[in-house]
Design a protein around this nucleic acid. Sequence first.
RNA 1: UGAGUCGGGCAGAUGUUCGCACGCUUGCGUGAGGAAAGUCCGGGCUGCACAGAGCAAAGGUGCCGGAUAACGUCCGGUGGAGGCGACUCUAAGGAUAGUGCAACAGAAAUAAACCGCCCGUUUUUAACGGGUAAGGGUGGAAAGGUAAGGUAAGAGCUUACCGCGCCUUUGGUAACAAAGGCGGCUCUGUAAACCCCACCUGCAGCAAGGUCAUUGGGACAUAUGGGCUGCUCGUCCGUUCCAUAAAUCGACCGCUAAAGCCCCUCGGCAACGACGGGCUCAGACAGAUGAACGUCAAAUACAGAACCCGGCUUAUAACCCGGCUCAAUUA
RNA 2: GGCGACAUAGCCAAGUGGCUAAGGCGUGGGACUGCAACUCCCUGAUCCCCGGUUCGAGUCCGGGUGUCGCCU
Length: 111
Amino acid sequence: MIFTQSLKKNHKFRYVYNRGRSIANRNLVMYVYRNGKDINRIGYSVSKKVGNSVVRSRVTRLLRESYRLTEEKVSRGYDIVVIARASICGLPFAEVDKSLKHLLRKQNLLK
RNA sequence: UGAGUCGGGCAGAUGUUCGCACGCUUGCGUGAGGAAAGUCCGGGCUGCACAGAGCAAAGGUGCCGGAUAACGUCCGGUGGAGGCGACUCUAAGGAUAGUGCAACAGAAAUAAACCGCCCGUUUUUAACGGGUAAGGGUGGAAAGGUAAGGUAAGAGCUUACCGCGCCUUUGGUAACAAAGGCGGCUCUGUAAACCCCACCUGCAGCAAGGUCAUUGGGACAUAUGGGCUGCUCGUCCGUUCCAUAAAUCGACCGCUAAAGCCCCUCGGCAACGACGGGCUCAGACAGAUGAACGUCAAAUACAGAACCCGGCUUAUAACCCGGCUCAAUUA
RNA sequence: GGCGACAUAGCCAAGUGGCUAAGGCGUGGGACUGCAACUCCCUGAUCCCCGGUUCGAGUCCGGGUGUCGCCU
């Protein structure tokens, strides 16, 4: 990770939920809010509805890997929250990667 | 060959590139499970102002012997139930310490007579009195079972066998088993109902608990009061309120070398134990194992550590291995 | 992560081991009314699931599933 930190505390998530712009597709929901700094902060949220703990960690890892590989093309200065929906469980990496990029493009974050 | 029964193993491996967590030697090492799960038991550890005792209450366990740190676990046996058998299941002390409950049905449910059977009387096909418990019917359960004798009809009334109870002897550490004798039958079931007997348990849980970080002012008080259920002891000593600083998105310790894992030999039927040798094997704090391309026929089940161990229970694809039993066929 | 509680009809719920599992609200049908309301009558249960104890289990015992609460 070059210029991205992870979003950890609950109140930061709340801040992005309340003020950020949300866009969704079939598998993911994405909230984005400009943070006015030179870095990005990204948080992943996978609820118990998605599956058991094995499924949830698998989804988190796929999302993290997908963002890592596309990080260089993403604009700086945003707080991002990615929420997984129930239909994402069991998808291969290529599908997850595709839907994350789709949302980033719709939020105009991809250079 | 078919049917069955009892177990055991494995839980993908490996190469290249990129990436994550921790450790230190800074470029290397290590990196989820057989159930990590449920939290159903047992411990370690920590606190309850050092460390505790007894009684009660409450809860648990319950054939015998052994294993173990301990257990409700495991091993070996005994009794009972099921199966042709291999084998499986078994909360399996006490109902003669006491109390309770047993709906409905049935004549009657812990004590007896509805229909019957037999005898007698009156009388005419029934009534009354008595005897009886073989048969009928109800029920989960009806007062030992079968056969013979016996009788008015019957009945442990008598005999034989079986069952039950008591005593003795023998075998066994014991549960218990076998043999012999005696008694005649009187005693329903339920203790996963209360209970009795024997044994065990103080309570809470790592969000336990500890360390680090300002000063001042009151109130009560010398044993009052307080210290994680009740009572009795014993023991300990300050307790509490307000303001202020810091914090409220705290930091660090606890945190992983342990009843640890592997191998050989020996003891034991076994669970397991002993000697010796070797190894070090996750430690996060929003929480680490992923991606791409290959090879192995294929790689897909259930599923992710959060203080740590020993069990139990539940979930689990595919593949592989072994013992034993029954039936049929062939030699 | 740890500790605890609960599950009975669409909803709220009672229920000593024993008859067809109370009661209220609601749904549907009927009666009453000129039509309604009110009222009256009728109507409905996988007692969360699987085993065990017992003659008999919603209830007792064991295991599982789901929901909710508390501890920082």
